[in-house]
Simulated assay, not measured.
Amino acid sequence: MPERGENMYRIQTFNNIAIRGLERYPRETYEVASSLPDPDAFMLRSHNLHETPIPDSVVAVGRAGSGVNNIPVDLLSERGVAVFNAPGANANAVKELVIGGLLLAARNLIPAAEYLRGLDGDLPDFEKRVEDGKKRFVGFELPGRTLGVIGLGAIGVKIANAARGLGMHVIGYDPKITVESAWRLASDVERARSVDAVVSQADVITFHVPLNDQTRNILDATRIRSLKPGAIVINLARDGIVDDTALGAALDAGRVHAYVSDFPTPALIRHPRVITLPHLGASTVESEENCAVMIADQLRDYLEHGNVVNSVNLPALSLERKGDSRLAIVNRNLPDRVGQISHVLGQNGVNIVHLVNESRGNLAYTLLDVEGAVDAATAEAIAGIDGVLRFRIL
């Protein structure tokens, strides 16, 4: 491996990252490989980073997908490492799978196909058996039915709008809906005040939320009892969102029509009312390429310019470059950190041209452009300020 040049960055990859994403890194200034000494950043998909040693050289981690449960975000935050994801890049893939699963469940297509596959075409009563199947697998149409959407982010909004196009009434719930999502949402989608309000009204309910303490078993035994008789439940979000044991009992009792899940369990994998998939949510060529491109661009922007787009632990922040040098500082969100940084620079004769600071939870992030170069002593003094977790000169 050649020695790293002054402006050379190293990206260590895990999993198979789409070539379109990797091509976003110029060969003149980036080394990209699955094994590298002292990498500046990790780029991964489903790899379990909780069990992977993370060198001190790593300043950023990019997940080519939306969920970050496979990344130790809290640990990395304590080290001042930015964690990025790709929200919305896989939204169309998941939307199409949800609509596909909904149609399969509403029309009983999977059990109907299995029924025919089990028939002997040489039997004299074959045609009669086919007609018997027609009666057994009567489904229902979607117009006029109510779809409940829990989580109105990039994916949830697309699903809500698509369902409106199919003639469904849509009711959604998201206490943290962003302005961008609200603008994209069809105006006739009804906003619910609680999860329970959605559960009690929906003929079909679909979940699009991250897995955390608030969403674990969000559809539990109590809420399952509140579902409308014959409801369809769809979970392509995260394992653990739905209490599978309680839902299995409701399926057995015939109170729930069908369950579409991307998270197979031994107990439900052969259930006649369950359509279970091998984690296909974002498994399309287009989705994998979109995620890889988005993450590659975000990592480049952070490594080269310090700008933060779609980070799950740092505040969104960008700054047009104006000075000779740029400083990027991640610190604990404590009083007077910006003042102390400015004081150190002033004491060492460094003039600030432009500065922006934002905070998010326990972390704060500062980008500032200065005139001239920052010498080693000044850099060491800034890095030594109490609470500074990561200091870079770009």
Rank of each mutant, 00 (worst) to 15 (best):
G372N: 10
A316D: 12
S57R: 12
P315I: 11
P143A: 05
A105W: 09
L119W: 09
A383L: 03
Q340E: 15
S77G: 13
L327C: 12
Y30C: 00
Y115D: 09
N85F: 10
T378P: 05
G240H: 12
R136P: 00
L36A: 11
N85M: 11
I295N: 02
A41D: 01
R27T: 12
D369L: 07
A249W: 02
N307D: 14
G281W: 12
V94Q: 08
S283I: 00
F140H: 12
I11K: 11
S318C: 03
L247W: 06
L97W: 10
M8N: 00
D213T: 13
D125C: 07
A250L: 08
A328V: 04
G21N: 07
N310D: 14
G88V: 01
D239Y: 07
D262R: 11
N161L: 09
R223E: 11
V293K: 07
E288C: 01
A249Q: 15
N212P: 02
I382F: 09
R392K: 14
N48D: 15
Y30N: 00
F391G: 02
I155Q: 08
G167P: 03
T378S: 13
G165Q: 12
S311N: 02
Q298C: 05
V32W: 02
A105I: 05
N48W: 04
E96T: 02
N333W: 06
T29R: 02
L44A: 12
G144K: 12
D324G: 14
T378Q: 05
L227A: 03
E380G: 11
E304S: 03
N108P: 00
R4H: 00
M294S: 14
Y9G: 00
I329Q: 04
E320S: 13
A296C: 04
H208I: 03
V73L: 09
Q12G: 06
L49H: 07
P72T: 02
N90M: 09
L314F: 15
I234A: 08
G139Q: 08
L299I: 15
V94C: 07
V149E: 03
K135P: 00
V59K: 14
N313W: 06
L147Q: 08
S181L: 01
N333D: 14
R360E: 11
V32C: 02
A93G: 12
E114R: 15
N362W: 01
V73M: 09
D243L: 07
N217H: 15
R300T: 01
I241H: 02
L355C: 08
A202D: 07
T215V: 03
L368D: 02
S57E: 10
L277R: 07
V353K: 10
N212K: 06
G230Q: 07
D174W: 10
P210N: 09
L299W: 04
D122Q: 13
P39T: 06
T178C: 01
M168G: 09
I232H: 05
T245R: 14
Q214R: 15
I275F: 14
G384Q: 08
N348S: 04
L44Q: 02
S77D: 00
A258I: 01
A197H: 13
H257D: 03
T206H: 10
L104F: 14
I99T: 03
I205P: 03
